[in-house]
C-alpha cells in the first residue's frame, strides 16, 4: 500500500447500482458482475456498501493461502488475481475464508470468480469500471494524493480488525480523521444475529 488503488467511501454511496452494471462490462469477466452492493441497514436506512476485492497484503491474500489448488496468483503489483481457470477445482475454500465476503463461485463451472481490479484496464493505467462510472465518488481510483487533491483533509484506512486479527489491504476505505489511528472494524465479533444482541 499504497500506489494507485480503489478508495471506498460508503458515506458517498447512494446504492444506484451503476458499479454493478459497469462491472458486468469488464472484458476479463464479461456478463458477470463481481462487485457487491449491499444494503446493510435494510428497512431502517438507505445505507449501502460497495465491496470490491480488498487485495489483502498482510496476511497476503487469505483466499490464495487456503486454495488447495494453488489457483490464485498474486501479481508483483499486489493484485490478487481471480482463480486460474486451469487449476480452480471449485472447492469454495476462498469464498468462505475471505473475511470480506468477496469471491463468488460458479458450482456448475467449478470456478471461482472475483474482482481482479479490472486488470485489463488498471495494468494500462485506466481506472476500473466501477470507479469509472460511480457518480458520487464512493469508489475512487487513484493515489492518496490524488484523492486528497479532490477531497482536502480526507483520511483513509487500510487495516481491518476481525476479532483479534488484523488484515492490511491494498484497497482502502475513507474514514473520519479521528478514526484513522485505529483499524476499521471488520464485523467480528458479531454483536447481533437477526436483531438479537449476542454479546456476552
Amino acid at each position: 500500500m499504497m500506489g494507485r488503488t480503489i478508495f471506498i467511501d460508503p458515506g458517498r454511496c447512494i446504492g444506484c447500482q451503476a458499479c454493478v452494471s459497469a462491472c458486468r462490462e469488464c472484458d476479463s469477466h464479461r456478463g458477470k458482475s463481481l462487485i457487491h452492493l449491499d444494503y446493510t441497514d435494510e428497512g431502517h436506512s438507505v445505507a449501502s456498501l460497495p465491496t470490491v476485492c480488498m487485495h489483502c497484503e498482510d496476511p497476503v491474500a487469505p483466499c490464495a493461502e487456503v486454495c488447495p489448488a494453488d489457483a490464485i496468483l498474486v501479481t508483483a503489483d499486489g493484485v490478487v488475481q481471480e482463480a486460474d481457470t486451469t487449476r480452480c477445482i471449485g472447492c469454495a475454500n476462498c469464498v468462505n475464508a475471505c473475511p470480506f465476503g468477496v469471491p463468488k463461485i460458479d458450482l456448475q463451472a467449478k470456478l471461482q470468480l472475483k474482482c481482479n481490479l479490472c486488470y485489463d484496464r488498471t495494468a494500462y493505467g485506466l481506472a476500473p469500471m466501477c470507479a469509472t462510472v460511480c457518480p458520487t465518488g464512493a469508489l475512487f481510483y487513484g493515489t492518496v494524493d490524488e484523492l486528497r487533491a479532490e477531497r482536502p483533509g480526507v483520511e483513509v484506512a487500510d487495516t481491518f480488525v476481525f476479532g483479534e486479527s488484523e488484515v492490511r489491504t491494498g484497497v482502502a476505505m475513507v474514514v473520519p480523521a479521528e478514526r484513522v489511528q485505529w483499524p476499521v472494524p471488520g464485523g467480528l465479533p458479531v454483536v447481533e444475529v437477526n436483531g438479537k444482541d449476542v454479546r456476552r
Binding site: 473520519p176 478514526r179 464485523g187
Partner: peptide, 21 residues
Amino acid sequence: CPRCKRVLRGNAYLSQVKKGF
C-alpha cells in the same frame, strides 16, 4: 455466509466508524 460478512462489516462501519454514513 459471504453476504452476512459484508453486511456485518457495513453495520460495524455504520455504527462505529461513520455514524449515518
